[in-house]
Design a protein around this nucleic acid. Structure first.
Lengths: 175, 175
DNA sequence: AGTATCGGCGATTATTCTTCGGCAGAAAGG
DNA sequence: CCTTTCTGCCGAAGAATAATCGCCGATACT
């Protein structure tokens, strides 16, 4: 037996093939991850152990990064949601900026292409708290300015969806 | 017995008091909602049934809106994340705009105060798909323009945190 | 054809969830 | 100050679920 073939087997496809069953399982778990494997299996057309095995694989492959409780910001005393665009001279990502992630008010931080360098999503208890956060940002060396977008109403806020639109509706092309 | 006192009891405080135990439970559930009540109880210093009861209450009060699996956009074939600002003449929220929420690419939609009316967070399979989505937006009557921010790197993306910063670090006040 | 591999299914065991009764502490009333 | 009432926690039991095992059919490769 050629043992060295095991090395070849260790290639990780990194795309462990996500078939239609997986997609349906992922969609169901993204919607509600507290349902039993039996119910999931019934929904997608598989047995409970089969679903269990697929979920285990999806977890290990990284397609499922975790399962989290969705909390209500207002109920927790953080009714103010805002997106903060940061303009920075030089390269935006600094060690100093990363320290801001320790604040539980910060939910997202991305570097973006556009007329801003870094984008924050923050949920604060009050305008004063947002001001304090902005002060923290402005205290970072290299930051030249910020632009804040205060959220008035949230019409949709959901986790990553499993679905992909492949056939976009025909658009009225600009002539 | 005055039965009518029951009516008074039906006042819902709407702030059913979230104490330190609740906050720790919520923090733990936001981080990982797949752990057992026994482990949670051990972490926060309560028994499993006590945690169960508190979680039930937090669920009912709306503090916990649900539990969802966090999926990996790239693994699902949607590696492109973008924030799209929409400028609209008149009032931004239209029935036509709400129909766009049916696309699984759309993860968030807010109306904001700032130099934009509506803000979308979309995760698409490709730049072409993003273009198709933008075309959908521009097809909505009243939309005068969009500004897109393509995400280059995501440094943080997490659900609503239970914690609140009350003592913000002293900021260097602008003199 | 033979053979190995993979994935699903049914059944079993182990964990966990969920409920129940009892009890201690705090708050309201006499 | 004592009683009453209420609330919330705990330990224990029963129900439901998660997690594992062996077997089987399908597929692909030799």
């Amino acid at each position: 037996m050629a043992k060295n073939t095991d090395d070849l087997r260790q290639r990780r496809p990194q795309q462990p093939v996500i078939d239609a069953f997986d997609r349906r399982i992922l969609a169901a778990l993204a919607a509600d991850s507290s349902q039993s494997y039996a119910r999931l299996g019934e929904a997608v057309g598989l047995s409970a152990p089969a679903v269990h095995e697929r979920v285990r694989r999806l977890r290990q492959s990284g397609a499922i990064k975790g399962v989290h409780a969705a909390l209500d910001g207002a109920a927790l005393g953080k009714p103010l949601l805002a997106f903060v665009h940061v303009e920075a001279a030089g390269w935006g990502k600094s060690e100093r900026l990363m320290q801001l992630l320790q604040f539980p008010e910060v939910e997202e931080m991305h570097s973006v292409a556009g007329d801003a360098s870094v984008l924050f999503k923050v949920r604060t208890a009050s305008p004063q708290a947002l001001e304090a956060f902005l002060a923290q940002i402005h205290a970072v060396p290299g930051v030249t300015g910020t632009r804040s977008y205060i959220v008035l109403s949230t019409y949709l806020e959901r986790p990553v969806q499993a679905g992909v639109t492949d056939g976009w509706p025909d658009m009225p092309r600009p002539e």
